[in-house]
Design a protein around this nucleic acid. Structure first.
Lengths: 338, 338
DNA sequence: CACCAGACTGTATGCGCTTACATCACGGAT
DNA sequence: ATCCGTGATGTAAGCGCATACAGTCTGGTG
């Protein structure tokens, strides 16, 4: 038999109060440090609490205080750099604000489990970090009843929005390709209304227009490896006159490069390729992947802070955007650095 | 001005009860489907609830029901494949059991924010997914008062434990290296008591012993890219007679290969290298990284289910281990597949 | 036709905490 | 000496729900 198996009932304010020789109100005040407790008393309470291993019951606090002190985070249940960083930033910022984070992973297509609703009863505000999709309606509904922030999604009435910069960097990235002498450019990714990839697509078109050119081809696919491989295969099968491919994210770009290279296409000599996100693999593939790095953690932190502000009564604010910077490696045609 | 800014106070059982023409007990029963409600009544309640956009307040349920219906997950705040998958598995399993997940990220060195304590007041059970470290004491303390499960950590009295298989696969992997004719093998990673990497190290030694050999060198470093690069640099600087390197994880292996290759060492011809985790980059680097793949999601799911069982009264059970399988690519000396 | 077992539903209590409001002690101002 | 402001603490009333216990109503039995 390992351990005692059972757990003793936790101490309550009453027991702490009795032990410290004060009333429960004083215990409560001590733990919510409203500053209204004399130093001596405070010490005594803390001491008693420590001895009893007292931890305030969040449920009771939430019920009495009418706020849960928790934030909800909805993201697709896929692993990967982007969402991990987002979540890390969100959690750190939330915990700095004294808020807990409750998770609600949605399936990648945006369908929520019935428990996504439970979330509403658990938190003071919700951040939607999954890409726009089947849950648009749900988001709008939530935004009507709780402080809500969307992360890199289409605009929702009543919700705050935070974004990573897409259009301008995409424009620069594409312009960079043009400087390398590329002229026949294709884009890989589905530019869905309000999504990150739509912004990247737009920026790519901007640069092209600046140069009096137009996009040779749009491969409208999901931003996943499989889709990237398929695009590469289509290119190998029906060669078209393309000298650069701007991919909506690194997953696509990596798969494209890998498959194309295996098929005999030289990257970047025959075809330059760029990605977006600066994932780990981007710096291990050959040639190194030229991509865009963003402070996704900051984005997550921003979301948490906006939510907290809304909860504290601030009105919804204008969308906020965080910056990004290109990481030039070899896949665009630059010389591989030492 | 965007949105109404304010949120209406949420509906309660009282309002639903009144609208449906029943008592609050019936509303409560309907939502906790204890099966004690007549179909007609149930319909009426659901209807009323829908109209009022009623969502049960988790805090009140928790307080009255004496259980939060939430699990806590403690993991280091680093991004990466492994922890994402773990969390995804944990969350999916938890939500299938009707439980929410509250996050508590600890800094990578195991130091918890003061808010890690809050977690105790918020959940019915806690899973520690961060590697053993500065928080060992905290884990033991939690295990004394709440159902607790450790994931890939050293044994803790009173806590359940789940692990991924390490020793046996490491033995096989090393044996595979021996089959390739390698004899002078080194290990990269710090084999800390009870950790995954300790198991891998042990398995590596097993295979060596089986063959009457011994480890040529142990590079005892943290399992991160920087450390891998430093090991590679040390090897370039002070060449030692090594023909294979078993790395504690992919991060190390990738960094080692990358740096070594840049320094003129041919992998796998001069030196074979293996990793662990089968991260994304493992299949994009050249040569493809031979590594071990594990169903980390399953591990997370297992943790959630054990916790739920403990909460429902089951006693602590014996540690559980999930399997794994080697993924042979080219870095071990195998021919690169098509 | 009286009686009883279910099957439902209602009443009432309390989960552990926050927070208005009341109380009290104390010291300076008048 | 009296009055009153100030700061510290206590009192008590819920917060929204689960649930034990007590009805109420049906239909089947003897």
């Amino acid at each position: 038999m390992t351990g005692n198996g059972d757990t003793l009932p936790a101490a309550t304010v009453y027991e702490v109060a009795e032990r410290a020789g004060v009333s429960i109100a004083t215990v409560s005040r001590t733990f919510s440090d409203s500053g209204k407790v004399a130093a001596r008393t405070r010490e005594a309470v803390l001491q008693a609490a420590q001895e009893l291993q007292y931890v305030p019951a969040a449920a009771a606090r939430a019920l009495a205080g009418r706020r849960t002190r928790a934030l909800g985070a909805v993201l697709p249940h896929i692993d990967g750099h982007y969402y991990s960083q987002l979540l890390v930033g969100f959690d750190i910022a939330a915990s700095e604000l004294g808020l807990s984070v409750v998770l609600a992973l949605a399936s990648p297509d945006g369908v929520h489990s019935p428990h996504a609703l439970d979330l509403l009863g658990r938190v003071d505000g919700i951040a939607f970090m999954a890409p726009s999709g089947a849950d648009d309606e749900f988001v709008a509904r939530v935004a009507g009843v709780r402080p809500t922030v969307t992360v890199a999604r289409g605009r929702v009435e009543g919700a705050d929005a935070v974004h990573a910069e897409n259009r301008a960097p995409a424009r620069e990235l594409t312009a960079h390709l043009l400087e390398h002498g590329r002229r026949r450019i294709g884009f890989v990714g589905r530019p869905e209304e309000g999504s990150d990839i739509a912004g990247r697509h737009r920026g790519c078109l901007d640069a092209l227009e600046d140069a009096g050119l137009s996009l040779v081809r749009l491969y409208e696919v999901d931003p996943v490896e499989d889709a990237g491989r398929e695009v590469a295969e289509r290119i190998l099968r029906e060669p078209i006159d393309l000298d650069a491919l701007v991919c909506g994210n690194d997953e696509l770009a990596l798969a494209v490069i890998s498959r194309l290279t295996a098929g005999g296409v030289r990257v970047p000599e025959d075809l330059a390729v760029t990605g977006w996100d600066d994932t780990v693999a981007a710096r291990y593939i050959t040639p190194g992947l030229t991509t865009v790095r963003q402070e996704i953690e900051q984005l997550g932190a921003l979301a948490a802070r906006r939510l907290a502000a809304r909860i504290d009564g601030s009105p919804a604010a204008d969308p906020v955007t965080i910056g990004s910077r290109a990481v030039l490696r070899a896949s665009c045609g630059c010389a591989e650095p030492a």
